[in-house]
Computed example of a mutant assay.
Amino acid sequence: MQYYEDVEIGDTNEFGAYEVTGEEIVEFADQYDPQPFHTDEEAASESAFGELVASGWHTASICMRLLVEGALEEQAAMGARGVDELRWRRPVTPGDVLSVRTEVLDKRVSESDPRRGYVDTLLEGRNQNDAVVISWIGLGMIERRDPET
């Protein structure tokens, strides 16, 4: 288990490989983001994207899943205070294979609860060409191994 004390500013990690399908793009969009360039191939071909693209929220959800499976399951994670600087950098299309890269930007002990530390981490979702498709700064909370120090 990785605790707050085990995390260092500058730590990086890369993990995951998830292939996005056209069917799931449409299914997600039908339920959560029903814009035509997410739900209809013909309409998408006439959009600014020129083809079917995943909702940014779908892309964020995929990357969150990769983050949980690749890092958070082995960390004494206590949730998050939110995210900053969420950006959709480029469209995700059917057949793209997404992975995640993280970098710890900052850490500090909570002033209100010494049992937890705050860790700010840059997350970049990347496609099979290593192009960044999404990024955000996660404002995580991690349990401290020894809150008395």
Score class of each variant (00 low, 15 high):
residue 146 D to V: 09
residue 66 L to R: 06
residue 135 S to N: 11
residue 16 G to R: 07
residue 37 F to R: 02
residue 95 G to R: 08
residue 104 V to M: 12
residue 5 E to S: 09
residue 19 E to D: 12
residue 14 E to H: 11
residue 129 N to P: 07
residue 111 E to T: 15
residue 77 A to R: 03
residue 24 E to L: 09
residue 36 P to Q: 02
residue 135 S to E: 15
residue 18 Y to P: 00
residue 104 V to A: 14
residue 47 S to R: 06
residue 11 D to C: 03
residue 15 F to G: 07
residue 71 A to F: 14
residue 132 V to S: 13
residue 101 R to Y: 06
residue 27 E to P: 02
residue 67 L to E: 08
residue 121 T to S: 06
residue 40 D to R: 01
residue 75 Q to H: 09
residue 70 G to D: 04
residue 127 N to D: 14
residue 54 A to L: 05
residue 85 E to T: 07
residue 128 Q to W: 03
residue 75 Q to V: 13
residue 137 I to W: 04
residue 117 G to Q: 01
residue 45 S to K: 13
residue 122 L to S: 03
residue 75 Q to N: 11
residue 35 Q to G: 02
residue 18 Y to Q: 00
residue 77 A to L: 09
residue 6 D to S: 01
residue 118 Y to C: 04
residue 17 A to S: 15
residue 67 L to K: 08
residue 100 V to Y: 09
residue 123 L to C: 05
residue 133 V to D: 00
residue 102 T to D: 08
residue 107 K to W: 09
residue 92 V to L: 13
residue 85 E to N: 15
residue 93 T to W: 03
residue 56 G to F: 00
residue 15 F to H: 14
residue 37 F to N: 00
residue 41 E to G: 12
residue 3 Y to H: 14
residue 146 D to E: 14
residue 8 E to Q: 15
residue 104 V to T: 15
residue 41 E to C: 06
residue 22 G to D: 04
residue 69 E to L: 13
residue 61 S to T: 10
residue 4 Y to L: 13
residue 146 D to A: 07
residue 148 E to P: 01
residue 57 W to P: 10
residue 145 R to E: 15
residue 60 A to T: 03
residue 102 T to Y: 07
residue 146 D to Q: 11
residue 92 V to K: 12
residue 78 M to P: 05
residue 90 R to A: 02
residue 30 D to H: 07
residue 118 Y to M: 06
residue 79 G to N: 07
residue 14 E to N: 05
residue 129 N to L: 11
residue 130 D to W: 09
residue 106 D to I: 12
residue 10 G to E: 08
residue 134 I to C: 11
residue 7 V to W: 01
residue 122 L to D: 02
residue 37 F to T: 02
residue 3 Y to L: 06
residue 96 D to G: 07
residue 39 T to P: 14
residue 82 G to R: 11
residue 94 P to A: 06
residue 149 T to C: 04
residue 132 V to K: 10
residue 127 N to F: 09
residue 36 P to K: 02
residue 46 E to Y: 13
residue 99 S to D: 00
residue 31 Q to C: 11
residue 58 H to S: 05
residue 122 L to F: 06
residue 22 G to C: 02
residue 103 E to K: 10
residue 36 P to N: 00
residue 114 P to E: 08
residue 114 P to K: 11
residue 139 L to N: 07
residue 98 L to I: 00
residue 17 A to C: 13
residue 14 E to T: 14
residue 101 R to G: 04
residue 148 E to F: 09
residue 103 E to M: 01
residue 144 R to P: 01
residue 138 G to E: 07
residue 98 L to W: 00
residue 21 T to W: 09
residue 141 M to G: 04
residue 41 E to L: 06
